[in-house]
């Protein structure tokens, strides 16, 4: 970690975040949207670990723990919701799940 500037890691996580947003915006399957959200959470974690490592302070890694826990809870609940929706409507296409549309 000595030779690589911190910006490289930040740019990497910026790219990952953008890829995640692309996935959320353009994909139609709810599960792929879910995977893209996991990508974005991972890029945020990468930023936290980068700052923590380059400042020599471990507290940032504690926050990564918290983010991971919330991500796990979110994955469990979200997939349960997707499965419940699939049972009712027989699709996970987010264009077809528009019952609340005005």
């Amino acid at each position: 970690m000595t030779s690589i500037p911190m910006e490289y890691y930040l740019v990497l996580s910026g790219f990952m975040f953008s890829v995640g947003i692309v996935g959320v915006l353009i994909r139609r399957n709810a599960i792929v949207v879910f995977m893209s959200i996991e990508l974005m959470l991972n890029s945020a974690n990468l930023t936290l670990v980068t700052f923590s490592s380059y400042l020599g302070n471990v507290t940032g890694q504690v926050f990564v723990f918290f983010v991971m826990t919330v991500a796990a809870a979110e994955a469990a609940v979200g997939l349960a919701i997707i499965i419940a929706i699939f049972r009712n409507k027989l699709t996970v296409d987010i264009d077809k799940i528009n019952i609340f549309k005005w």
């Binding site: 970690m1 890691y9 599960i31 879910f34 995977m35 996991e38 991972n42 974690n45 670990v49 980068t50 923590s52 490592s53 890694q61 990564v64 723990f65 991971m68 991500a71 796990a72 994955a75 469990a76 997939l79 997707i82 499965i83």
Partner: peptide
């Protein structure tokens, strides 16, 4: 980056947990 424990937790939680959950989904 020198975050060894976080790396292990990443593999355990994401690869071992969330990814399997997604595949089941």
């Amino acid at each position: 980056l020198g975050a060894d424990f976080i790396a292990i937790v990443q593999i355990l939680v994401y690869v071992g947990g969330i990814l399997i959950l997604l595949l089941f989904g």
